[in-house]
């Protein structure tokens, strides 16, 4: 680890302990799951609140039934993406790179499929409480998932560059550089797995319970 660029010339500045940043990533990966839980809990609350109220029987106005086939496909893509990446993250960095690319591809496909579903849906956003929750939850889920995919892509790109420059030493005790990289992969895979679990919950509520 290098000293800060702002350190005075000729003066020894003790570097910060190398375990701090990987630990911050580990903890950060878990905490951000807490934040997104509360964000999506609002939609869960809205779902049950409006469904229970069913004001003027307007929970569903007309034939409000999303295509379960597309729903299953979206959920399956997300799930596959998360499982592949999480399993690979527990093994070698080589696996992580390939799995990361697959995860990003699958995740982007799921987002694309979500927007295709909006085009072919038989109901609009104004078709009652259910429709509001459906559009609100799925759209924000798709947008937030792009952030998770960005995080995974950063790991993939960093791995690719580090390997290309021959700086990865898998057989030795990890350097601070590789420790940081591994922490990033672990944190992002944990986050992505948790995020996808919320997506599965969304699928159950919106397609099976709703």
């Amino acid at each position: 680890m290098e000293a800060s660029a702002s350190a005075p010339v000729g003066r020894h500045i003790e570097p910060e302990p190398p375990e701090w940043q990987p630990r911050a990533l580990w903890v950060g990966g878990r905490l951000i799951c807490g934040s997104i839980s509360f964000f999506f809990a609002s939609f869960v609350f809205a779902f049950f609140y409006l469904k229970a109220l069913d004001l003027n029987h307007n929970w569903k106005i007309g034939n409000v039934v999303p295509d379960a086939g597309i729903g299953i496909a979206i959920a399956a893509l997300y799930l596959f993406s998360a499982v592949v990446y999480r399993l690979a993250a527990r093994r070698t960095t080589g696996d992580s790179m390939a799995a990361g690319m697959i995860a990003v591809f699958m995740g982007l496909a799921a987002v694309a499929l979500q927007f295709i579903q909006y085009i072919v849906l038989d109901f609009g956003a104004a078709s009652g409480g259910y429709a509001a929750v459906f559009f609100g939850w799925t759209a924000s889920y798709a947008v937030v998932s792009l952030m998770g995919l960005y995080w995974i892509q950063v790991q993939v790109a960093t791995l690719w560059r580090v390997r290309r420059e021959g700086r990865m030493r898998e057989t030795e005790v990890p350097t601070s550089e590789t420790a940081l990289l591994l922490a990033g992969i672990e944190a992002s895979s944990f986050y992505w797995g948790y995020f996808v679990a919320i997506g599965v919950l969304a699928y159950i509520l919106l397609y099976l319970v709703g």
Partner: peptide, 8 residues
């Protein structure tokens, strides 16, 4: 990889 600063 440097975890700290590099602003050249």
């Amino acid at each position: 990889m440097s975890a700290v600063a590099v602003s050249s």
